[in-house]
Design a binder for these strands. Structure first.
Lengths: 147, 147
DNA sequence: GTTTTTGCAAACCATTTGCAGGGTC
DNA sequence: GACCCTGCAAATGGTTTGCAAAAAC
């Protein structure tokens, strides 16, 4: 169940130095349940007295983004948050209750993108789909009362 | 071809006061070709010596967002930008060349969202799809040289 | 030993807010 | 005339940067 190796080996393999602070940030990231902000990590690092500076956390996040271990989310509120993800899939359903994110595969989206490209004449390089809702757990927690 | 009325009548109809600064911002917005940032408008307002403060511009943008005349985009860079749009459609293809955005309708997306809801068990409240690519004009401008 | 990385603090940028004066309905 | 809106300047919050010391290779 250790997912840290993914992040850590990615760092090493990419030719970046495997330093203490980076390990620490990777661990913090792995410990996050749902989505989280840079500020969350900064706070947690301080709370645990890890002695890691803001800047280092931001730099580590950038690195993890670049390696595809994390993805940056833009929440409806405009906040920037991050979620862990597999380096391949690239869409998430984010729970507005607990912040947890589920990864989703194509689900027919490619066809939609192709349709749009055709209709608009644009050559589409990239896209981002973000979905927001309530996860099964959060629904169960509140739906026991059917009015 | 005047699109200003849309924005202006929307403001009035919604019960907000139709003031000089708001008119001015609406005009600036209408004059934008592609997407733009709040900073762009601030700079332009200052260049034209309109005497409108930053705060007012931000407040006017919020208003236009609320009225559905504008939509906020999160560019791949993480920047916040705005585009004019019809109050109904809610997805855009943004040109990375000129910044112009085309609106797109469903194009099968609803089915995709339903599929995702079914597969993940999430109850999906909202979603955001942003596409980035090159518009026909920008493609034509550079594609004259087929290798 | 060389090069990368870190921590700190200051700088920076975008956005928000408090408030007195001015404009709109 | 009452209330909404504006400008200003200061506060805020998030992110970046410069640089000397420390760590990794």
């Amino acid at each position: 169940m250790t997912e840290s190796p993914t992040a850590l080996t990615a760092i090493g393999r990419a030719g970046y130095r495997l330093t203490g602070p980076r390990r620490a940030v990777a661990e913090l990231v792995v410990g996050q349940e749902g989505h989280f902000t840079a500020a969350d990590l900064v706070a947690e690092a301080r709370a645990r007295r890890l002695g890691i500076g803001r800047a280092t956390i931001f730099r580590a996040l950038d690195l993890l983004l670049e390696l595809g271990v994390l993805e940056r989310l833009d929440l409806p509120s405009g906040e920037h948050a991050y979620v862990r993800c597999e380096p391949i899939h690239h869409h998430h359903v984010v729970c507005s209750g607990c912040g947890r994110a589920a990864e989703i595969d194509d689900a027919g989206l490619r066809a939609v993108v192709d349709t749009i490209a055709e209709r608009t004449g644009y050559e589409i390089d990239s896209h981002r789909l973000e979905l927001f809702g309530r996860c099964p757990d959060c629904r169960a927690r509140s739906e026991g009362v059917p009015s």
